[in-house]
Amino acid sequence: MRPILLQGHERSLTQIKYNRDGDLIFSTAKDQIVSVWYSANGERLGTYSGHQGALWTVDVNPTTTLLATGAADNTIKIWDVQTGRCLKTWDFPTAVKRVEFSEDGTLLLAVTEMRMGYLGTVVVFPIVNDVNAPQADTPVLRITFEQSKGTVAAWSALNKHIVVGHEDGSVSLYDSKTGEQLANEQIHEPDMLITDIQMAPDRTYFVTASKDKSAKLVETSTLKVLKTYATDTPLNSAAITAKKDFVILGGGQEARDVTTTSAREGRFEARFFHKIFEDEIGRVRGHFGPLNTVACHPQGTGYASGGEDGYVRVHHFDQPYFDFMYEVEKMTRNQQIV
């Protein structure tokens, strides 16, 4: 599995997203640049310039026509993917830490930070999937966090619910129409930040990553923890692979400790766990700093990681990856064939 090294960012990566077809990768970094790359060969198609602060988050809609970005300049921007034109800017009093389109692309959620006397929020905007149409000026929903601030959020299936990961290690489920909190569960260790939430393809379950050195697989409708993946390092990101029953975790020691820590001791590796059996089955080295973000190819043919070192590493899986099976998986496959 020979990675392709994408060099173009000058500061640490913050988020990576594949588009629905998996032929493009969008990346954001603290250098204020949004990049788009061909996933097959790592060639950079272009950049989206306009933000005045570190980029925290990116997402692309299902038709790969609109791109959303959120930044430390307290704005969300919507871009025409093809031309790079900025179509809309929404201003907030604080930084925008996460954006995500709903599965049908008609809604966009954003998590804004709690700072300078402002409470953290989740806002939802209606989205018109037309690069020539005006977008709404105001959100249709605003959820304010009175207690622990939200750090990450994601849509459930059919846009029914919004799942929010909090600073205190809990996860909340909100009604996306009314903003009512339906459930709140202490999924991770208390006061251990949830750093990432990524949905399964059908959004019936999701994976969380946390500074408590674990990742959890959680049922969306009930917030019941289905699986736990324990590691020895704080986690920044977790992703679910298509085709194979794996999850990929990325993390490493904090950036402030990196100068006094060797790459080996920093554990800057992507870790592969079996989704069902919870066993670690492999690691991929390469980054020279913590992995801040991991994303899986939507067709399950590879993954990409973005590091504190400023690099994106794109991996295309070899045949042995697809051949790997536990004995019980082989047994049940044979039973199914018979």
């Binding site: 393809p201 059908d202 298509a242 085709k243 194979k244 029953d245 989704k275 939507p298 067709q299 697809f322």
Partner: peptide
């Protein structure tokens, strides 16, 4: 598009 099967073996 073709549905992405969960846990399908290639």
């Amino acid at each position: 598009e073709e549905p992405i099967e969960d846990g399908e073996v290639v």
